[in-house]
Design a binder for these strands. Sequence first.
DNA 1: CTGAGTTGTGCGATATTTGAACAAATATCG
DNA 2: CGATATTTGTTCAAATATCGCACAACTCAG
Lengths: 251, 251
Amino acid sequence: MKQTDFVGGLAKGLRVMEAFGSGQPGMTIAQMSEATGLDRATARRCLLTLAELGYAHYDGKHFELTPKVLRLGHAYLSVTPLPQLLQPHLEALSKEVGQSASASVLEGSEVVYIARASQKRVMSINLVPGSRLPAWCASMGRVLLAALPQEQMLAVLDRSELRPLTPHTKVARPDLLAELARVREQGYAVIDQELELGLCSIAIPLMDARGRVIAALNIGAPAAAIDARDMPERYLPLMRHVQAELRPLLP
Amino acid sequence: MKQTDFVGGLAKGLRVMEAFGSGQPGMTIAQMSEATGLDRATARRCLLTLAELGYAHYDGKHFELTPKVLRLGHAYLSVTPLPQLLQPHLEALSKEVGQSASASVLEGSEVVYIARASQKRVMSINLVPGSRLPAWCASMGRVLLAALPQEQMLAVLDRSELRPLTPHTKVARPDLLAELARVREQGYAVIDQELELGLCSIAIPLMDARGRVIAALNIGAPAAAIDARDMPERYLPLMRHVQAELRPLLP
DNA sequence: CTGAGTTGTGCGATATTTGAACAAATATCG
DNA sequence: CGATATTTGTTCAAATATCGCACAACTCAG
């Protein structure tokens, strides 16, 4: 890409907006400068611009994002067919099994939730469209990684920080590779409290009409409600049904 | 605000991102230029920058947003206490009454959904956090407008396009003012298919510890399931309970 | 009252926006 | 169907705005 085809101000402003996500609700200019690596003067200008446009609020000391930023995510959700198409299926599935159902896509080394029907909260973190989890230790992430060409899959693992999140987390690379091979083989992934204690989940890939994996579908349940080993038998048939139903609808 | 404290490139880029929301999933450079009023060259630079940063995808002809933009909305949702606090209450409420429950705030002349627990789809439009509806004809909007100082409330109505969305929509200004006065009086608003045929809803304001109205809570139901006139009796007690529970928790 | 930390400001150097002109692609019409 | 018209995408140099630094004003704690 040509040097002159890049709008630096936009890139910096987006850096600033993302930086709001990690930290306290209110950020001062200096904190923002620190968090983004931008010059203080630049961070200040970006923040003032966001405030002027109504994306942020400034009380003279702290800046915070306003609900207006939701417009941006909404600009994606409302015109992209995939989330809209999935949502009713997730709701039906969620109701049928009495557990939360979600769909996500792979972005870099993380899965991004694009639709979700929640039944009850079992995770400490609140998952909404836009939430992100490390791919290597989430059920949908495993499914999506397993669908990648070997080379890309390994590249993602290389970039990931394989750190145990619970005592059950598989972190050894050989274990992970074996697990991913098994996932590719059997067409589904099961996670037993690897991401968060007390949470099990099962995921399958969603293919488009040409057979390319474009998203993943999962059901999450409290470990207290069901043993992870029973999840395939209990949930897979329904999930496969949704998978088959959606396939011809995806372009 | 000082002229030099404004980053034009950021403002233009955000205009571009929002413009994706209204239209087809894929936008050409010329369409974007048209939609934003930016010069074609500028629109192109913004789009290429977004593509370079991974917020958009470019196939040589059409640009479309990627799920990465969800990060931005998520930056708001994940650090703002209000949506997080509300979500579990909405889910409990939704489950208890078997209908969808939502929360929203006022932004300009629109309500923005900040949290939602959906039970089944009754509206043709898919509501998610970030969705917007005109305040004057939505139940939560009426509640939030009624809480505004008279002057601001009138200003919002002046800016709104009072167009009937269904045969039931109240559009006459005197009717609306009388309705808003009643809403302020009784502390709740009921909408009977004014926004969409077949949809009824009831909303109440959510106050913070100091009594300021900061958001609204609603329950939406198909007109087939319940007569709008029965909603207060059936749903208000539970909603008031949530309202009272939340009030001391809101800063 | 000091001093560390933070915020606001002015300015030269640098990078970006602009608008028109050109090239490529697509649509229109005889 | 081919030629012309129209739209679209791209390039370039001049005009303009931004960047980051250094410094001043301010705030808050000890």
